[in-house]
Nucleic acid binder design. Structure first.
Lengths: 204, 204
DNA sequence: TTAGAATTCTATAGATTTATTGAAAATATA
DNA sequence: TATATTTTCAATAAATCTATAGAATTCTAA
């Protein structure tokens, strides 16, 4: 058994196979945790999802905590970089906001179990990792807020806009986009609808 | 011990004292469950919050499930009625929307532990009660959507507004209002800010 | 002050959980 | 095929959880 349970075996050409299986285990864990919550999802449940015995999981992860850490890492990967890239662009404020909304919602749709587990279960992480994630989220919130503040400075958005609150509410709406139940809930239509209301309002 | 653990004693004048204590137990349970989640909150944790021994709780509730049911009942009480009353009023659409937002956020601020426990932990209810709550939420969503649709019909809101999505996103923002962290996060200011952006948008 | 009612406690049963150990099975390699 | 490596499993330890039973305590009222 690999040291610590989560370290891969030694032969280098076998690593990829090990890592592929580890990914499958992680997918199963994310699915069960998204469905039943971290404490509601037993390791027996996760093993059942995979069709293996419960101790087999420990060949790939040292602990349930560690699996949640990895799930959260995947669920948050790239967010900051994508938003930064959008802000570095040259388009109009409204298009940057549209792009930011779209970029945020995309993983919510493509890897919903990872994002959902991150959103709802990250508070059960060990404190060090939890605080680390908190800092990352704080940076993202700040960057999103900066996007709006730049729009205000440029004269594209209302000068009295509460950018902190507005950024928070936009992020909240993007996170909730996975729970939409309407007729056409495609990524495109959902992100466009959120952006439209945010930019131009609902009133005539 | 009262039959079933949760039924009050017989002498009628003692009932109020029993019910008061039951409320204290419920407050403690709501606080711990809001903080640690339903499965993360052990009955020992809840008893510790009250400073009593763990089995003492069972004098007031037959089970942990039952306590969660009661917490969810309190956390959702009055929502439908308040929204209905607002819709029955005669004011302009924009003011009804403002009132609806304000009314939704108020319990989020006044009884946060109950609302938070309801929002995040209701999925762990026994299935019958969970579906019952689901129907209640569905009615509320539908009523909120109707409010917007009436606005569209009256010519107060844009004819192409996606009322289902917009209602869902408004409710989502109200529910998230408990997590605001800005300078002035009063009920008034938060609800006004949400309504302003929704009605008139962020763009100049 | 004492009898009865109401409330809380100690002790514990019984189920479930995470994680470990060492053996068995499966797979790859020579 | 035989050997070594990788992967999985059965068995189980140890901790924790919900809930119960019955005793002890506290409160109330005559």
């Amino acid at each position: 058994m690999p040291e610590g349970g989560h370290l891969p075996p030694l032969r280098k050409d076998k690593k990829t196979k090990y890592l592929r299986r580890q990914q499958e285990v992680l997918d199963a864990a994310a699915a069960v945790i998204a469905r039943k919550g971290y404490h509601g999802a037993s390791t027996t449940d996760i093993a059942g999802e995979l069709g293996v015995a419960q101790p087999s999981l420990y060949y790939y992860f040292a602990s349930k905590d560690e699996a949640l850490e990895e799930i959260c890492r995947i669920g948050t990967a790239g967010y900051l970089e994508r938003l930064q890239a959008i802000m570095d662009g040259t388009g109009a404020t409204r298009n940057k906001i549209r792009d930011a909304i779209r970029a945020h919602i995309e993983p919510v749709r493509t890897i919903p179990n990872y994002v959902k587990s991150f959103q709802r279960e990250r508070r059960y992480l060990p404190s060090e990792r939890r605080h680390e994630l908190g800092r990352l989220i704080g940076e993202y919130d700040k960057l999103f807020r900066l996007l709006l503040e730049c729009g205000v400075s440029a004269g594209d958005l209302k000068p009295d806009l509460d950018c902190e609150l507005a950024a928070f509410m936009l992020i909240t709406q993007c996170n909730a986009a996975q729970y939409c139940v309407g007729d056409d809930v495609s990524l495109d239509r959902t992100s466009t609808a959120i952006a439209d209301v945010f930019l131009t309002g609902a009133e005539l």
